[in-house]
Design a protein around this nucleic acid. Structure first.
Lengths: 241, 241
DNA sequence: CGGGGCGTTGACTACGCTCAACGATAGTGG
DNA sequence: CCACTATCGTTGAGCGTAGTCAACGCCCCG
């Protein structure tokens, strides 16, 4: 069953651009120029930390582009446990994938500015602009890809690998690189991290502690991580064993 | 933090059609009529069980519509563990979300027939047909929704809930209902199930055994499940506690 | 100064993994 | 036709990772 296992060492099309020898570190939001331009033509909206943009079940009547800051999309499971589906970073778009209702609640992790456009404005434009519609397709594909690359593998990984994966994700999308010495800002709480990774707060804490003991990372403050051993962190995230 | 938890008992737009009082049992592939019609105009392709349609890393040059049977999309993690990303059911489409390369391997779980169209044929048509392009958007949204509804919550659930979720998914998409007495066909092996749920074969087996002991299900043969207590199964799948 | 949210650590428990064995079935070749 | 083998499903014993419950320090804010 494992005969075919590592037959295809797949490397993304952007691999290597700006990230010399760190495999699979790079994939970026696609250039949906028309859609982004349209959104940036709207007037920006400033949101405070913890502010909610929309609630699960609300009518999905808007689409947002994050200009700065960070959002998270979450939902509560019937037992009351919160499940964070995604963090939304600058240049990313929320709301395109929703049907008639929002399937998640969107809240600001930190002070955030977004551009907002009504679906009632966007839809007719898309219907008559193949370019715009194509940008929508690009963004949906991007969402699916982040789901497949960031989230899916986690279900098969242990706590340490999940945390490593989150750190890589943050390095990839916020700062520029996660080479030795790069600092990673963690704007979210331990609780947010736990609800995103499917772990408990305590396990997240203990995992950070263990990673520090192992010399993988250091952390002057709880919300600032410094990666000390990139290669080890990357292979941990990939589940290299 | 839990104050808002169950504020919005969200029910999909199709809820209730054929599924009287079973919440959240129904969501179906969207009616992408133009796209489906285009695919069905191609000549059908018969595949044997275990046959591979494409490998991870192959050039993504085709799009497939499953007419009958079942596919699975998988990938191997660096440590050799296989990860099944999705099962593909009749009426569902594979290949739309890929970038230039296939990000998964597609294999037949059972004998399967598919319709296949080259991207080089499809893309130009989409570029000039808003209707077709809109169908692509619909299918991508559907993929995202199944990801969010089927997969995401599993990361936060235990073995029994994951298995229950799989059973509900199969009931929803293959047969018609999962009311008491309905039989669910399990064409995939325990190994497939394990690689999909992020568990081991042994845990999957033991979970089935426990569910039988608890009177939730019965199983005349390993690949045929009869649901004896729908409500309990559903709330298990939802993580109701 | 008190209270609440957040982060961390410890002790204990339990769920799922590992390793091992065994039965059943189906496909293969003597 | 019947061993022979491989694959699949199932069960048991023991272990380890992550969850639970609890306590405590820190910081910010009222």
């Amino acid at each position: 069953m494992l005969t075919r296992s590592m037959a295809v060492p797949h490397v993304g099309p952007h691999a290597g651009i700006g990230f010399p020898n760190v495999k699979d570190l790079a994939f970026e939001a696609p250039e949906a120029r028309a859609l982004v331009a349209l959104l940036k033509a709207q007037k920006p909206l400033s949101c405070k930390a913890k502010e909610v943009l929309f609630h699960e079940g609300d009518a999905a009547d808007s689409v947002f582009l994050v200009a700065s800051g960070m959002l998270c999309l979450y939902r509560f499971m019937p037992n009351g446990q919160r499940m964070i589906a995604r963090f939304i970073f600058p240049h990313e778009i929320v709301g395109l994938a929703f049907d008639t209702d929002c399937s998640f609640t969107a809240a600001c992790i930190e002070p955030t500015t977004v551009y907002k456009i009504a679906r009632s404005s966007l839809n007719p434009l898309c219907a008559h602009s193949p370019v715009l519609q194509n940008d929508v397709v690009l963004m949906l594909k991007y969402e699916l890809r982040t789901e497949h690359e960031d989230h899916l593998p986690m279900m098969h990984q242990n706590a340490e690998a999940r945390v490593a994966r989150l750190l890589r994700m943050l390095a990839r999308r916020t700062s520029t690189d996660c080479r030795k010495g790069e600092r990673i800002q963690l704007p979210m709480t331990r609780s947010d991290i736990a609800d995103f990774l499917g772990l408990t707060i305590e396990t997240v804490c203990r995992t950070f502690t263990r990673m520090k003991e192992e010399g993988l990372i250091s952390a002057p403050t709880p919300d600032r991580i410094r990666v000390e051993n990139v290669d080890a962190l990357i292979s941990l995230a990939d589940g290299d064993e």
